[in-house]
Each structure stands twice: as C-alpha cells, then as structure tokens.
C-alpha cells in the first residue's frame, strides 16, 4: 500500500555517535535480500512441552514493545508480586495506604515460563497473572484469573547481545484482560524497572509477510481458510473487503513462489501478494493494492494492524513469537 512508503523508508540507524555499549548490527524490515526463517530450530535440547504453553493459545493478545528492564532480578519474583499487588490495591483506592504482603482482593503471581525462548541469549519469558479471590465460594475453589500478561524474547539477540549487565531484554509484552489492569501493571513496571511500553502496531507490510509465511506452513489437521481483510481508505462509509482463500490453494500458490524452502524474501512476499491481487482484480475489478491490509488470519495465527494477535497452533508458537519479537525490537531501536 502506498501510504506505508513513509514508514519503510525510515532509515534504520546502525550506530550512535555516543559510544554506547551496543551497536546496531543489521537492518531488518524492507530489506529484500535478507531472509527470514519460518520455524526456528529450538536451541535447547529438550523439546518444549506444549501443555505448559497451551493457555497462551487461542486467546487474543494485545501487543506492546518494552525497552530493557533495568535491575530486574529473576530471584525476586515473589517480592515483586507482593509489591505489585500492594501497588494495584493502593492505586485502586487512591489515598489509602496498603501494607505490602497482606491478603488483598487481587492476587498477583509472577512466574517464569521456561520453554519460551529461542537463542541462548534469550531470557526466560515472564508471566504476570492477576486473579481475584473468590469471597463467596469456598476456600478450595480456584482464584479466577482476571488478567494475564507475559514478557518474552524469542531470538531477540539484536537487542540482548548489546545490552550491558543489569538490563534484562524481554522486548515483547502480550496482555489479555481489562486495559485498566494493563495500565496498572505497566505503570508499576515502568516505575520499578525504568522501562517504556508502547503499543505495537503491525504495518500492512508486515501483515503481508505474516500471511505469506503462514500460508505456506503445513498443518496436521484441517485448517481454516486464509483470510485477508482490507479497509478502503477515504470513504464516507467504512468499507472492509474480506478476501478468503482455501488454505490448500494458498499453500499451492506460495509453493510456486518460494525459491528456497524455509526462507522467505521480500521479493517473494511481493510476488505472492501481487498474485492474490491480480486474481481478485480479475473477478471483481478492484485493485486491492490500493486498499489497506488490516487483518490476516490463517490456521496458524491471526493478526490485526492495531497489534492484536491470536496464536492457534502450538507448533508455530516460537515462530510467531520470533517475528513479533523482531517487530518489537525494531520499535525500540
């Protein structure tokens, strides 16, 4: 789409004048020569346990990018949970002091998610869960999770390899639950670890990358249709165009486009999209390239331009997270 041009031509800066202890290694987006791996090889020997991460699937996650956390200590998760719990309580009842560590309405749990990393440099993912204590029901009943969010980094080496000690790189933050809790948790992290959160929007260019990458993936079970949603700009009435393709057709098209299996280039993505546009134009006489791609969904995952993703397939969880980590890092640097 033409309006993305501005975004893409932003120079990706490779170095800073001040001798910061990190440099910019390589440009990423919009560079046609650089390839992308679809499914990264897990670096750790043990196979990730799909059960442990099952709760991450089939939920709509809102994406944020986070700058490195300063002086975050993995050994203090329980302390952090107590502090965060008291902070939330104090914020909710502004002006009343709250003792740290007492039972509160909202229970906070912080834990590590061991299986969600790519390279050796990646830190374990960090899960934050808020649950409300059930007052009426018996003590045995489980607390109800009202909000959850997790920080992660999958092959985030671009960021982490250049960051000095005392900084923890978990550039991607995903939340599910009320925005008010997101804001409380985010504020606390900002204050405590001097980091910055920003909503991570996904540009149409990156959406087209996603659909191309995911359309070519093999799935065990019968997959749902590949769907692209376009929005037509500058109309009095909002007009969305949905373009659904049978997953096997999409895969067949992709297979004709892709040259090196397992690797994708910008050129291939462009060809793939152009084919889809040409097909659509043949039938409906509409140039989709003039509209804005706002949502893609495949059997692997779906993603919206406003930065909401849903991951459907555990096998491709690391791959999707790797791509999102990359986007988050490019927003930070």
């Amino acid at each position: 789409a033409p309006e993305d041009g501005a975004v893409r031509t932003l120079p990706s800066l490779r170095r800073l004048s001040r001798a910061l202890p990190f440099g910019r290694s390589h440009g990423r987006l919009g560079v046609s020569s650089s390839g992308r791996l679809i499914v990264p090889a897990p670096s750790s020997q043990e196979k990730a346990d799909p059960q442990k991460t099952a709760f991450l699937l089939r939920k709509a996650w809102t994406l944020y990018s986070v700058t490195p956390l300063y002086r975050f200590r993995r050994g203090r998760l329980r302390d952090y949970a107590r502090l965060l719990g008291a902070f939330i309580a104090a914020e909710k009842q502004k002006g009343l002091a709250v003792e740290v560590g007492v039972e509160l309405d909202i229970k906070v749990a912080l834990s590590s998610l061991a299986d969600l990393r790519g390279s050796e440099l990646d830190q374990d993912a960090l899960l934050v869960q808020l649950s409300s204590r059930s007052q009426a029901s018996s003590k045995n009943s489980e607390d109800k999770v009202v909000w959850s969010g997790w920080f992660c980094s999958v092959f985030g080496d671009d960021l982490s390899e250049n960051v000095p000690e005392h900084f923890t790189c978990l550039p991607l933050f995903l939340t599910h639950g009320a925005e008010s809790y997101t804001s409380l948790v985010g504020s606390w992290f900002q204050k405590t670890f001097d980091c910055c959160f920003r909503r991570l929007a996904i540009s149409p260019l990156n959406l087209s990358w996603m659909v191309a990458m995911w359309a070519g993936c093999k799935l065990d079970r019968a997959a749902s249709a590949v769907e692209l949603v376009f929005s037509v700009p500058r109309l009095a009435q909002p007009l969305d165009i949905s373009y659904a393709i049978h997953p096997e057709d999409a895969k067949a098209l992709w297979d004709t486009v892709q040259k090196t299996p397992g690797e994708i280039t910008q050129e291939e993505v462009d060809v793939f999209m152009d084919c889809l546009y040409a097909h659509f134009h043949r039938h409906f006489k509409i140039h989709l390239s003039a509209a804005k791609l706002v949502k893609v969904s495949t059997g692997i995952a779906s993603a919206q331009c406003d930065g909401i993703v849903k991951i459907l397939h555990s096998q491709y969880l690391p791959g999707v997270l790797m791509l999102l980590t990359e986007l988050a890092i490019s927003q930070i640097q």
Binding site: L83, A86, F87, A90, L96, A97, V98, E99, V100
Partner: peptide, 17 residues
Amino acid sequence: LSLYKLFCPEQVTITLP
C-alpha cells in the same frame, strides 16, 4: 505513610490523589 513508603517501599505503599 508516604514518607514511610519512601523509606521502606517493600513494606507499605500508597498512591496519593
């Protein structure tokens, strides 16, 4: 209490309006 929080944030917390 906010002064106490300032000195010992790990024991008490408060958000001032």
